[in-house]
């Protein structure tokens, strides 16, 4: 893991950890430098024009207004188009991860055409191997963006967008919805966890199985609360309550680093707070508040969910 990254992982286009982001960063740096130089020259000319008095010639306009911008643009245009051609390729052989945007969370399906393993809000990818993200939405338009890995792409009703990217270093990279999608748009983030390919394969195998058994009595009580309070109407925990697709899959919810779509640290306290008063933490979320649960029930449920790793 990259030690220099903060608690949430990198979310910056200036710190690139993959070829897509690196290409964009190179463009950014080159264009910024060119931009600053051009700005300085133009301002220098303004200064000269103010200080000196002379007879302007029309070749100034030809040179400065037409030839100069044209030359700059041409270089930029070719550079940019070549970069675009390089990053716009979708790789047919790449591993596919389908991400569905919801108000305000992300449904994740690994290998949708094969094993179709479902998870939510945290996406694991193998380091150094191309991954194709297939992007759809269940409601309004969202935009899938992990700045440190690649540029963004929208999720649009009625369409399927896709792009291929590679993470070149292991680490946690934060992403966020980049298209305004309603009330809690600022609270719709996620994390991409890049791990070595063998670790990734192991992760998938582990994920495909059923949820870890509740061994201790406290956790068993929590599992009971989960089933009795009606959580299973929306949430799936494989091996416990299967089939519900309305809310995020909770099979390994405790294993995620963050709660509430990349927003809060995953721990018992936050989990309990979330269940009791989700409307306060994330206004507009579809999940109702469960503040009628008794204190012990709530604690047990939170403990059980946290144990699901």
């Amino acid at each position: 893991m990259n030690a220099e990254l903060g608690e949430f992982g990198a979310q910056s286009a200036l710190r690139a950890f993959g070829p897509n982001a690196e290409a964009a960063l190179l463009l950014t740096v080159v264009m910024s430098v060119a931009g600053i130089v051009i700005l300085a020259i133009v301002m220098g000319l303004v200064w000269l024009a103010v200080r000196r008095t002379g007879r302007p010639r029309s070749w100034w306009i030809w040179a400065g207004g037409i030839v100069w911008p044209l030359a700059t643009i041409l270089v930029l245009f070719v550079f940019s188009t070549i970069t675009l051609r390089a990053i716009a390729r979708t790789d047919d052989t790449a591993f596919v991860i389908e991400v569905t945007g919801h108000q305000y969370w992300w449904d994740v399906v690994y290998d949708p055409d094969g094993r179709a393993i479902r998870d939510a809000n945290e996406i694991w990818v193998p380091v150094g191997e191309p991954v194709t993200f297939r992007l759809v939405t269940d409601d309004v338009i969202h935009s899938f963006w992990v700045p440190s890995l690649a540029g963004k792409m929208d999720m649009i009703p009625g369409r399927t967008n896709a792009f291929t990217m590679v993470a070149s270093e292991p680490g946690r990279y934060r992403g966020q919805c980049a298209e305004f999608c309603g009330l809690s748009h600022p609270q719709m983030a996620f994390e991409v966890v890049a791990v070595p390919p063998d670790r990734f394969a192991a992760f998938l195998d582990e994920l495909q199985g059923e949820a870890r058994d509740a061994a201790r009595p406290e956790l068993l009580a929590g599992k009971q609360v989960f089933l009795e309070a009606g959580c299973a109407a929306c949430h799936q925990i494989r091996g416990v309550a299967e089939g519900a697709m309305v809310g995020p899959d909770l099979t390994r919810v405790g294993g995620r680093a963050a709660l509430g779509a990349g927003m809060w640290r995953m721990n018992k306290g936050n989990l309990a707070g979330w269940i009791a008063d989700v409307g306060d933490m994330k206004p507009g979320a579809q999940m109702p508040n469960y503040n009628h649960l008794s204190g012990p029930d709530l604690r047990a449920l939170a403990a059980y969910l946290e144990s699901l790793t």
Partner: peptide, 13 residues
């Protein structure tokens, strides 16, 4: 002009 560059735009849009 920077924003007109598509790959750059993917990042900063």
């Amino acid at each position: 002009v920077m924003l007109a560059s598509v790959p750059f735009n993917f990042q900063v849009h």
